[in-house]
């Protein structure tokens, strides 16, 4: 079943074009990795999918689970099943993590015309999730991401992913700032999410997360469009050779062939 269809997407920020004709399709249950040099548009893609108001779509379309995402507010996209794990999760002092999670979960359930969980049921569920991600339950009492280390923030993002049960996880450099153990814990969480038949769009700079979350497809983003697609071996090639060889290949290859691997 087709989960996400991005077609010829053009996006700009403050009149500066960032995405220039990006196309990508993924089916439910697939893991796609997006790699690419700094400034290629990876985080822009994540933010656009989640509905950040600072990005202007000037062309193309995004369809999610058969419906157009264009014009939907971020919360409507969340209710539809899109989840973005932030590269830099924000601190919200004064609001405890537990209160925030409860409010988000209640909102999700209300959107599906479901009753909220009782406080007791909810706390039990969240504590179990926290434990599975090696997050001390003390973190639930603290302000949202307040004073959290980089690794704790990322684990908190995965906790939200597992709690809110979306259909698509867009992970924006979730592996950055993680030590080896934390990387494994986070990867385990992502794999649990994936095992339920959900889609994962994993944005990363490095191959190391892909050792734990094995992608079905790897795409290379450069200058705001996907310039190469392949299987997991492409990530290994990038790790070994960097991105320069792709640029050289592109200069030698007609555009029609370059785009053929992008859609599946």
């Amino acid at each position: 079943m087709r989960l996400l269809d991005i077609d010829d997407l053009h996006v700009r920020v403050d009149d500066k074009p960032i995405l220039n004709g990006l196309s990508l399709s993924m089916n439910a249950g697939e893991v796609h990795a997006i790699m690419g040099p700094n400034g290629s548009g990876k985080s822009t893609l994540a933010n656009v999918l989640a509905g950040h108001p600072g990005y202007e779509i000037i062309g193309g379309s995004i369809r999610f689970a058969g419906a157009d995402l264009d014009g939907l507010a971020p919360e409507e996209r969340a209710h539809a099943g899109v989840f973005m794990a932030f590269q830099h999760p924000v601190e919200i002092p004064g609001v405890t993590n537990m209160e925030f999670l409860k409010a988000a979960n209640d909102s999700r359930l209300a959107a599906r015309n479901l009753e909220p969980l009782s406080a007791l049921e909810f706390m039990k569920k969240v504590r179990n999730l926290a434990q599975s991600l090696d997050l001390d339950s003390e973190f639930l009492k603290r302000g949202v991401n307040e004073g959290f280390s980089g690794g704790e923030r990322k684990r908190n993002e995965i906790l939200q992913l597992l709690l809110l049960e979306p259909k698509l996880a867009v992970l924006d450099e979730t592996d950055s700032g993680l030590d080896i153990d934390a990387l494994r814990t986070v990867a385990d969480g992502v794999n649990r999410f994936h095992a339920d038949g959900n889609g994962v769009l994993l944005i990363t700079h490095y191959q190391r997360l892909l050792n734990h979350v094995v992608p079905d497809h790897v795409h290379v983003l450069a200058d705001g469009r996907i310039v190469e697609s392949g299987d997991g071996s492409l990530a290994h090639a990038l790790e070994e050779r960097g991105y320069a060889w792709l640029r050289e290949d592109r200069e030698d290859t007609p555009p029609a062939r370059r785009s053929s691997g992008m859609r599946n």
């Binding site: 969340a78 932030f86 609001v95 925030f100």
Partner: peptide, 22 residues
């Protein structure tokens, strides 16, 4: 912060309220 809360499914007016009270 507003976008972060909205991306978790909270409508804008509730997200604003949470930030104010926090």
């Amino acid at each position: 912060a507003l976008f972060y809360l909205q991306s978790r499914g909270l409508p804008e007016h509730r997200a604003r309220r949470i930030l104010c009270i926090g």
